[in-house]
Every structure is written in C-alpha cells, then in structure tokens.
Design a binder for these strands. Structure first.
Lengths: 111, 111
DNA sequence: CTTCATAGGTAGGAAAGCTACCTGTCAGGG
DNA sequence: CCCTGACAGGTAGCTTTCCTACCTATGAAG
C-alpha cells in the first residue's frame, strides 16, 4: 500500500503506536509494519522527520537511552499528545465516514 | 472538515460523483457538499485543477455544452475512469482498514 | 453601469511524504 | 586491523496535492 495516501494521518498513526508504550524510531516503523500486517512499510525518511514534527508540536517527548551499548532515541506520548490522539481519532472517524459515503457503496457487496 | 486531509482521495471522490452522471464543475462541488451533508465544501481552486488532472489522465472527458445560453464544461466518466474508480475504491478500503486498525478501537463503541 | 449569483479558470505558496544519501555502532569473517 | 551486514538515526531536495487569492464572464435586477 502506498503511504503517500497517509497524508495528514501519519501523525495520528505515530501517536497511536506510541499509545501502547514508548518506542524508538526504528521500533515504531516495525510496530507499524507488524500491526498493519505488512501494509505499512514506512521509510525512515518519512518517520524520523514526522517524529521531530510531533516533538516540536509537543505531542511526544524524546529521550536518549543506552540499550545494548547503543544510543537510541526513545519517544513517548505526552499529555498533549494523548489529547491530540483523541482528537485525531474523532477526526479520522469523520473523515472516513465522509469519504466512505462516496467510496463505500456499503449495502451492496454482493456481486 | 478540512479538505486538506483528502490528499490523494479527492480524485476518487470526483470520480464517484461523476459515476452517477455527467456534471459540470460547479455542480460537482455542490454534489460533493450535498452528499457529504456539508462536510465537504471544496473551493473551485481545488476542484477545477483536479478535474483537469483527471482529464489529462484520461479518467474523465469534458465537453462544452450551452445551457441557458451559458457555456458550461460538462465532465463525464470514461471507461478508464470507471476502472480507475473501482481501483480507487479498493484502495480506499485497504487504506481505511489499515488506518482504522490504529485509529478505530473498533469493538468498543459503547460508551 | 453596478451588484449579485452562477460558472470557469490561473498563479503562487505551503505542507506532507518520498527517494536517495550519509553517519555511526556492534558482530562476524579474514 | 579491515570489510561487510544488520541495526539505528538523520538530512536535503524533489514532487504532488491542495489552498488562498485573484481574475474573467454571463444574465438578471435596479
């Protein structure tokens, strides 16, 4: 699946995976891939800048932690981020309902 | 609702409204607004260029028709466009299912 | 002629994501 | 020590898409 279509929803996805616990960037990419059953395979060039955007916006906080002798920047949801996620969720429902009205025929899957 | 979030899905929406019959640009905007119950109120600066893109891609064909003594450019779905729409529909299902996996908790709407 | 509603159109700008590239650590093989 | 490969983080420049703002034009009302 093309991630280009994510436009505007990527941030929400990122917040959603962080909702289950702090992760470092690379692990976020893997979580996205795992939870989407391989549908979302985002390049680092997409995710890292997005995380920085989220941090600038105050939605996530990052901290360097040394794991296995290696520096990993771990991202964690802030309170603001949690609120933003809730917001994005309702935004997503509205959006998918609206677009679905046009693209999901709905009651006619038989054929 | 912000149409910015449409990114990449606008074309599909336009094809979807044209599926029900040929319309001119302005009428397409009104159809979008009507069928979305006011959620989608796209500016002409968004729709007209999009229609031209679709025409270049061969998904729609346009023809000038004189109605009420006025020239109106009427857009119609082509066969290619119909196929593209079907394609976009399945793309949309995949997309909404994938993003929904993260943003729709799903089985917990009671609350 | 001016104003309003309808209708079509363009230019320039901003945002988001992608491709391609670069840096650096740790482990294994030579 | 050097090289390679898997992991991890990061940046620059490009393209696409959509939006804001503006312009043109018709027909009716005054």
């Amino acid at each position: 699946m093309k991630a280009q279509a994510l436009h505007g929803h990527l941030d929400a996805l990122l917040l959603a995976v962080l909702e289950r616990g702090a992760l470092h960037g690379y692990a976020i990419i893997e979580a996205l891939r795992a939870r989407s059953e391989g549908q979302l395979d985002l390049p680092t060039g997409t995710v890292y800048p997005a995380l920085r955007r989220l941090e600038r916006a105050g939605h996530v906080a990052s901290a360097w932690s040394t794991v296995n002798g290696r520096e990993r920047r771990t991202y964690e949801l802030t309170d603001t981020g949690r609120r933003a996620l809730a917001d994005q969720r309702s935004g997503w429902r509205e959006f998918s309902a609206t677009v679905g009205r046009f693209l999901d025929p709905g009651p006619a899957p038989a054929g």
